[in-house]
């Protein structure tokens, strides 16, 4: 028993557990909009782009969070603007802009070989070395994102569901895009230290897709995704203590395992419903005819 509570005895682990729980909750909540906008790949691209922003901030001597957030939000806006051109598809826009922004970082690193900052942490995450300031940054970002989502919820949902009608109904599309870009960039940057560039895309996408398999209601989807993100964040770090595997990778592998489990269970349920429907159609008696009626979409 004492062994199970061992991780909580250490300051750095308590900080890591708190940071991963908050990061899981934040990425999953924001990820709902990312997935429904069919921008699942943007997390991956944006994380790379922000790596460029991190290097530029370091070279320019400005605050990492501020510089990288501006860089990231600007990248998202550019992706949106380029993707609206008829000749450029959304995934092509992500591919061009985020790799170019990443390349800026690589170019600067190759010129300045005197860097002392550990960019490996940015690439792969280093949650165990997280400071109180980093935890504060994640918590602050989460409060900011929660406030923005609260106030802009209807506008964001409207634009995500039906962009044309939202615009026709007077929703300020340009502002919605700016707010969404800021939310996404701030989320990626705040969680970079926990998950790293390479794993953040998964944390944005897996919990919302898992939750989507379980519900058809938008508010429920949001809460289920956030809950999955927070729980897997916490459990992932906790488990990583025992299995001695990279903490970011453990979080993402746990999320993938939960997704696989939900996929299998919902798949089995759907197959059983299908079989029941087929049997009813073949007239297998009243017992079967009534079975599963509550689950019917029109029941």
């Amino acid at each position: 028993m004492a062994e199970l509570l061992e991780p909580f005895e250490f300051d750095f682990m308590r900080r890591a557990l708190l940071a991963a729980t908050l990061a899981g909750l934040l990425t999953a909540g924001v990820g709902v909009f990312v997935v429904l906008r069919r921008l699942s790949y943007i997390g991956h691209g944006l994380a790379h782009s922000i790596f460029g922003g991190a290097v530029v901030s370091f070279v320019a001597g400005i605050n990492f969070y501020l510089g990288a957030t501006i860089w990231g939000a600007f990248s998202v806006l550019l992706i949106n603007a380029a993707g609206r051109r008829r000749q450029i598809s959304g995934d092509a826009a992500i591919g061009i802009i985020t790799t170019a922004a990443f390349a800026v970082g690589v170019a600067l690193i190759s010129r300045e070989r005197t860097f002392t900052r550990d960019f490996e942490a940015v690439l792969f995450g280093e949650v165990l070395g997280i400071s109180n300031t980093d935890v504060g940054a994640i918590a602050g970002t989460m409060l900011l994102v929660a406030a923005l989502l609260f106030v802009w919820w209807k506008r964001l949902v409207f634009v995500t569901f039906d962009r044309d009608v939202a615009r026709a109904s007077g929703v300020p599309l340009a502002w919605v895009e700016v707010v969404f870009s800021l939310i996404l960039a701030a989320t990626v940057i705040a969680c970079l230290q926990v998950l790293g560039v390479t794993l953040i895309a998964a944390a944005l996408v897996i919990p919302p897709v898992t939750a989507r398999l379980l519900t058809d209601s938008f508010p429920r989807l949001f809460f289920l995704a956030a809950l999955t993100g927070a729980l897997t964040g916490f459990l992932g770090i906790y488990l990583s203590w025992f299995v001695d595997v990279s903490s970011g990778a453990t979080v993402v592998l746990l999320q993938a395992a939960v997704f696989a489990l939900v996929l299998a269970v919902t798949g089995l349920r759907a197959r059983r419903r299908e079989r029941g429907g087929r049997r009813r159609a073949q007239g297998d008696g009243p017992g079967d005819a009534f079975a599963g009626m509550e689950r019917s979409p029109f029941g």
């Binding site: 409207f158 569901f161 939202a166 058809d216 938008f218 429920r220």
Partner: peptide
Amino acid sequence: YVPQVESIDWNFPITPEQVVLLGRW
């Protein structure tokens, strides 16, 4: 404005009442 039904993502998790309420954003 009523768009073409082909332009809608029918997998979006939303109910008819929630769709109509968007008109009162």
